[in-house]
Amino acid sequence: MTVYLDHAATTPMLPAALAVMTEQLAVVGNPSSPHRTGRAARQVVEESRERIARCLGARPSEVIFTSGGTESDNLAVKGTFVARRDRDPARVRLLVGATEHHAVLDSVEFLVAHEGAKVTWLDCNPDGVVEPATVRAAIEADPGSVALVSVMWANNEVGAIQDVRAIAEVAHEYDVPVHTDAVQAAGHVPVDFAASGVDLMSVTAHKLGGPIGVGALVARRDAALVPLTHGGGQERQVRSGTLDTPAIAGFASAVVDATAHLDEEAARLVALRDDLIERAMAIAPDIRPSGVWRRGDVSSRLPGNVHLLVPGCDGDSLLYLLDAAGISCSTGSACQAGVPQPSHVLLAMGVGEADARGALRVTLGHTSTQADVDAFVEALPAAVERARRAREATAS
């Protein structure tokens, strides 16, 4: 039996989303075709777009379907940079949070290497939060050079929630658009695109109970974007490619379900999260959560996020020992799994390299139970003891 505690990597599909997608998989129709079956598929797509928009505080015309969070981040960062730079050659600077997901970080590095971009990394505080004052100072260093600000809504490793509205207000004083990666936030904490004030927002289905392989870039109608793919001109001439009608239908169902039960599910997960953290800290006096954690708090940390620092251990050793005990969790982003380096997120937060190597990410979701938490806490002491012995043996 496996206890699954890696919901930040991907979470099981919600039953309603699975049913809707399965039904649509049996129906033929290209939503770009003008005949009856094509029009039927188009109706499913557009009704799904309307449902997603309504749940995320956006207009349907602002929802651009993509293959997921990585594509949405790439389109937002690269597409905005090129459009802004082409309009005004002085706009070559990107202001980016130092704790961003690699879909953003690597997009920025590509632009630096190939498009003449310059980047200013926005430092965070010890809780992993980028302060609006930090954004202001970075812009004011050379306001006319900034093409885009990108700061994620909620961090995928430590669960820190940013004040994206305050950041957007600052950036807009200088006519600078703002992108936020809301992949971890949507469906888990309140997300309202219009109220946030951001210009572009990335979301994906498989983090909130939908299928893998579909997501969206929510972009204001006046957002300047150069497409990364070319072809049929679907999705506002910004993202070409035949739309995956069944996946989009499943995505919409998951968004509706997740947002409808958001408050009650958040309260349930917070109770499990806090119990897990307190019991883990009781195992050894030096085990502690990274970032901000307050019992019952849902405003500064994702409800289902537990990120532990376990000094004297290698995170990979802990991961494999727990896996052998039937516990599936992670050391950080699934996109970086197997990379033997300390987390850039923790280093940016001021965590020392030795402690950063002993990080463990445990993330809860809609299938998580008290029994899952109990199983993790029961398996942790032996895993910590063996991982510490292995570290000591290696050091000697």
Rank of each mutant, 00 (worst) to 15 (best):
A185W: 02
E169C: 14
E169A: 15
L200M: 14
A224Q: 14
D175F: 05
S202L: 05
H188L: 15
A216Q: 04
A216I: 08
T204D: 02
T204R: 00
H188Q: 14
A195T: 03
L208S: 07
H188V: 15
Q234A: 11
H230E: 13
A182M: 08
V203G: 04
G213E: 02
I167P: 12
L208I: 11
A195W: 10
T204C: 08
E173N: 03
K207C: 03
R165E: 12
S196V: 13
V218F: 03
H206K: 06
D175P: 01
T229V: 15
A195E: 12
I167Y: 14
A194G: 10
G231C: 10
R220Q: 09
V226M: 08
A194Q: 04
A195I: 00
T204V: 04
V178H: 04
M201H: 11
G213L: 04
H230T: 11
I167F: 12
A182C: 09
I212S: 05
A171H: 00
D222L: 11
S202H: 02
A205W: 03
G233L: 04
L208Y: 01
A182Q: 06
V198Q: 01
A224E: 12
Q184E: 11
H172F: 02
G232E: 13
A185T: 02
P227H: 04
G215E: 02
H206D: 15
H206F: 12
R220V: 06
A166M: 10
T204G: 11
T180K: 09
G187I: 07
A219V: 03
A186C: 13
V178R: 07
L217D: 00
E169K: 13
E173R: 13
I167V: 12
L208K: 13
S196E: 05
P190N: 06
A185C: 09
Q184K: 14
P177Q: 03
R165M: 10
T180C: 15
P211F: 11
V214M: 05
A194M: 05
G187D: 09
A223F: 06
D222Y: 15
K207V: 00
V218K: 10
L200T: 12
D175E: 14
H188W: 13
V183K: 03
Q234M: 06
T180S: 15
L228K: 08
L200Q: 14
A195H: 07
V189P: 14
A166W: 09
G231S: 08
A195K: 14
E169G: 15
G187N: 08
A182G: 11
P227L: 10
V226T: 13
H230D: 08
A224P: 01
M201V: 04
V218L: 15
S196G: 05
H206Q: 13
L225M: 05
D181E: 07
A219S: 11
A168N: 07
D199T: 14
A205M: 03
Y174G: 11
L228R: 14
D199P: 04
A224M: 10
V198Y: 02
E173F: 08
V170C: 06
D181H: 11
L200I: 02
I212E: 01
S202Y: 05
Q234P: 01
G231I: 09
V183H: 01
A186F: 03
A185R: 07
F193W: 13
I212L: 13
S196K: 02
H172D: 13
G210T: 04
D192R: 09
R220A: 05
S202K: 01
P190T: 07
A194I: 06
V226H: 02
G213F: 09
T180Q: 09
L208T: 09
